[in-house]
């Protein structure tokens, strides 16, 4: 087991390294050199100035040299500065990551609470009206464009009904004027619409998945044996069926974290939610390469670690997998 974990860890790190190099090179292909633009704004910037500036920043070197320098800094914890905000990357990124975590974890937990019971429930009454209706909704959930859903939710619930705030993470300027409970309540209010947008896809997907796995499990011989033994049906379902069906479901959930994190980019952008996903998007548009690189790599790393965790969990839960 330990050898397996180590091997997978090494693999993950290699992937992260490769990914960071490729994205570093790709960012170099993005339009507009920030230095050229800065130089253009300054009427006294001469070609010599520009060369000097490039040399000072090491931009005259080939991309792999620059990449290793960047990596060196990254490894030693020196993420550098954001060009747009002129602040250390960590100052900006960490609160944003925490915000994204709030959003993702809430969506994840909510999706689990809704999807799994629904999936199990409907799998026990296959081909009923309820099953069909739920299936329809699940399909709609997978097929709806999330940004469009977000727009519609804003129009209906924020503008027309005015139940929930249209965007942001909290009401600004209330600190010190309201109690902690009210602050938490305010934050939850702001989470409702983005979480709904983000969760719909995963809920829809997991309901279908749980249902399918549950149906599959209930056909296995050991279930028949359990029934034949005269065990009560509820015991058959929950002790034997559910336990085995949940093994693959659990890993899919761990993977779901990755899709939620990824989907958060669009959700955060539409809801002006200050998260890491929006930061990646904004910094790319603002030519803030370092910011974009760091937030992208750290986000990807978190997602890859979750994937690794999913694999390990699966290996641990399913005795049929060997760790070689």
């Amino acid at each position: 087991m330990t050898a397996y974990i180590i091997r997978r860890l090494i693999q993950t790190i290699i992937v992260v390294l490769l990914l960071s190099f490729v994205s570093y090179a790709l960012m170099g292909l993005m339009p507009g050199d920030p230095l050229d633009i800065a130089c253009q704004a300054n009427p006294h910037c001469t070609p010599e100035n520009l060369d000097q500036m490039k040399k000072a920043l090491g931009l005259d070197q080939p991309v792999y040299v620059r990449y290793f320098k960047w990596l060196q800094g990254f490894m030693t914890g020196d993420l550098g500065y954001s060009r747009t905000y002129r602040l250390p990357i960590t100052d900006i990124l960490i609160p944003r990551l925490i915000n994204t975590l709030y959003l993702s974890v809430t969506s994840l937990v909510l999706s689990i609470i809704i999807a799994i019971p629904l999936g199990v429930f409907t799998s026990l009454r296959p081909n009923t009206k309820f099953d069909y209706t739920l299936n329809m909704f699940a399909f709609a959930g997978i097929s709806i464009p999330s940004f469009w859903l977000a727009l519609m939710l804003i129009i209906i619930f924020a503008v027309k009904l005015q139940i929930f705030p249209a965007s942001g993470i909290e009401t600004i300027g209330l600190e010190g004027e309201i109690s902690t409970f009210e602050i938490v309540w305010d934050r939850i209010n702001h989470l409702v619409l983005p979480v709904t947008t983000l969760s719909l896809l995963t809920v829809a997907f997991w309901v279908r998945y749980t249902r399918a796995k549950m149906l599959e499990t209930m056909r296995f011989d050991y279930i028949r044996t359990a029934r034949a033994k005269g065990l009560p049906e509820s015991r058959v379902i929950y002790m034997h069926g559910l336990r085995n069906a949940l093994i693959p479901v659990v890993t899919v959930i761990a993977l779901g974290f990755s899709s939620i994190f990824s989907g958060a980019v669009i959700t955060e952008t539409v809801f002006a939610y200050l998260g890491a996903g929006k930061l990646i998007f904004d910094s790319i548009f603002a030519n803030d390469y370092n910011m974009a690189m760091c937030s992208f790599i750290i986000t990807s790393f978190m997602v890859l670690m979750m994937n690794l965790f999913a694999d390990l969990l699966y290996a641990y839960l399913d005795p049929r997998i060997s760790y070689t």
Binding site: I154, A158, V159, G168, T171, I172, T269, A272
Partner: peptide
């Protein structure tokens, strides 16, 4: 209070919603 809302559509929604 100055509030940055980069998406113009979300900006208008915020105005309509009173935030």
């Amino acid at each position: 209070i100055m509030k940055l809302i980069p998406n113009t559509q979300t900006l208008e929604s915020n105005l309509m919603a009173g935030s």
